[in-house]
């Protein structure tokens, strides 16, 4: 019965509502919806076909993550969604948003109160000169091609999958903290609940189930983009293969991040 409703709805959403309201679709059907409907297991796929891919590694796709800092409005939706998704303890950040302010004297002021989780409600009041430029920079795991966290992990608890995800085995991590020291981007922390290293996974569990990373899903201005580089029609492919100002963080570290930034300014570290 649900299939019928869903099919009907995806065909023409507005018509569906109208039909329901005008009684064309039986009222009894409508009653079914709240009871047996959407569960987290059967949310419509956002990345089509992912649920058919049951191999240990993602076979047909090469995922890339792009942050467009020319679009970010610093609302912190991503941070809120991320904290909700992983129930991240206070004071630890899988993702955060930084605010950059540059004054007329070219001084750079950066802040990220509570990792941007509460948004940016107030302007900085401690800047003595007129402000020339200001922008937001979201940060998350760089999913390095040569991850130094994996290199230093003594027990193989942090590992890189064949499809390029850098993940943590919470059942084997000893929490020595070496990966935290080794990560040039400071995306790692020790989760006080599990007492193991923790970090952004690009929502591996969602991606494998055909959903976008939660931060990408909630971003109201498409500042965070996630897509398949094997698909030449995808937005990420086009951004990375057409003339855009695209760069990565700390290229000198040699980690080769798969996280790209559009419109990155030289002030950003």
């Amino acid at each position: 019965m649900m299939d019928v409703i869903q099919k009907e709805m995806s065909r023409d959403r507005r018509a569906f509502i109208k039909n329901v309201l005008s009684g064309t679709i039986a009222g009894s059907l409508l009653l079914v919806i709240p009871a047996g409907a959407m569960d987290l297991g059967n949310i419509p796929e956002q990345i089509t076909g992912m649920r058919d891919d049951t191999e240990p590694f993602i076979t047909k796709r090469k995922f890339a993550f792009i942050v467009d800092i020319t679009r970010c409005i610093g609302c912190g939706s991503c941070c809120v969604a991320d904290k909700n998704e992983y129930q991240v303890p206070d004071g630890m950040y899988r993702t955060w948003v930084e605010r950059y302010v540059i004054d007329d004297e070219d001084n750079v002021y950066v802040d990220s109160p509570n990792g941007g989780l509460d948004g940016y409600q107030e302007p900085r009041k401690d800047i003595p000169h007129p402000v020339r430029d200001t922008f937001f920079v979201p940060k998350l795991c760089n999913m390095c091609e040569h991850p130094s966290c994996v290199q230093v992990c003594p027990v193989g608890a942090t590992y890189q999958t064949d499809d390029g995800f850098v993940l943590i085995d919470a059942k084997r991590c000893v929490a020595c903290g070496y990966c935290i020291q080794a990560c040039p981007y400071s995306v790692r922390f020790i989760n006080p609940k599990t007492k193991t290293a923790d970090k952004c996974t690009w929502c591996y569990h969602r991606v494998r189930k055909g959903l976008l990373p939660v931060c990408v899903n909630v971003c109201p201005v498409q500042a965070r983009k996630f897509g398949d580089l094997n698909d030449k029609e995808s937005e990420v492919y086009k951004i990375l293969h057409q003339p855009h100002v695209v760069s990565i963080l700390k290229p000198g570290m040699g980690n080769k991040p798969s996280l790209h930034y559009v419109g990155l300014r030289r002030e950003v570290v």
Partner: peptide, 28 residues
């Protein structure tokens, strides 16, 4: 001090059983 520092000292022997060849710490 190392065991006291570890979040999971009960897993410390993993360093001996599954040392990662690329880790500067694993050889210790």
């Amino acid at each position: 001090p190392l065991l006291n520092h570890l979040g999971h000292p009960e897993r410390a022997m993993s360093m001996m059983f599954t040392p990662s060849a690329s880790s500067a710490m694993a050889g210790f």
